[in-house]
Design a protein around this nucleic acid. Sequence first.
DNA 1: GTCTATATGGTGATAGAC
DNA 2: GTCTATCACCATATAGAC
Lengths: 187, 187
Amino acid sequence: MQKEKVRDRIIRVASDLFYKQGFNSTGINQIIAEADIAIGSLYNHFSSKNELLKAYLIKEELKWFSGFEEHSLKIVSSKDKIFALIDYRKKLQTSSKFAGCHFIKINAEIGDSNPVISDFVMQHKEKQQAMIKELVIQYNAEGGSVNTDEITANIRLLLEGAVVISTIHKNTNAFDQTKKIIQGLLP
Amino acid sequence: MQKEKVRDRIIRVASDLFYKQGFNSTGINQIIAEADIAIGSLYNHFSSKNELLKAYLIKEELKWFSGFEEHSLKIVSSKDKIFALIDYRKKLQTSSKFAGCHFIKINAEIGDSNPVISDFVMQHKEKQQAMIKELVIQYNAEGGSVNTDEITANIRLLLEGAVVISTIHKNTNAFDQTKKIIQGLLP
DNA sequence: GTCTATATGGTGATAGAC
DNA sequence: GTCTATCACCATATAGAC
């Protein structure tokens, strides 16, 4: 096994802290302590804490999409893939002890103080929407007959609602409920 | 007009900053500067920044419920009241320039570091749910025949999803979409 | 009750030796 | 590229005069 590079270790440690404690509550000192490096090394790899935040979000986005790809590898029908997406987000919630969506979290934390990051979050959610749209298009190609844009938007709406509610109540009821509703939307 | 009490001014200024900038990004110094008081006065009224946070959330909860009451005063039918609730949250979003839900925001910011606040948020959302349930019960009493708990949960799910999505994308599309779906749920 | 002054520790970031 | 030492600043909170 290859040794983990310093840069990767920094991102890994920082990501974990940003997600669990929040970005503003995580200090540079804590990151270098847990990554077991000197502060000079950190600033050699990242010019500011904000650059580290960007690296964190880029990595989480990659993880999100590759994670879903892996999760839905063996599934062929588009309808099953849509349900796999609900299961995927449910799994992300349980495995993180209901810590919530990385992107919604950072968006809530920065408010309107960091437009570059807000834009990144918006674009990330648009990528998710585009992915869902692909699935709905495939669903229609396989014999379904739903309004693509409308059903795409509805699935997104329900999914985001389920993630937020499950984060607050620390249970998965909202996902099961979402499945039921989407069952009704995809005849 | 009576003069605003110092305590009220502190809460008003802090609330605005907590909501717009985030709790962790708002310092005591900024609060006392904008409230135009000395730091000693602040700590005479609130023993810690966390007490100030509690006062903020309690005030926002009161405002939320009284705001909806006022918004839906003249409406009689339960179905119209449910749609008024969607409009109410849409209005809150537009008037705050899509700053999001106070309670989801603070929950995202504190993570699992402050269970008292997390609990408050959970209880607040349960109060909202109870209010929606009353409306659905009334809907059935007025001739509807829907599963009370299921429809209540669905309305909540859609509403929270709409708020989150509208916060990220800074538009109200998700609310109009939510209305359409709820139209279908309430025959 | 409100004020000023201060305590104590942490923040992000930089300089320069090795 | 990694290290130590240090910067200037800001955080929350307290003490005590008025």
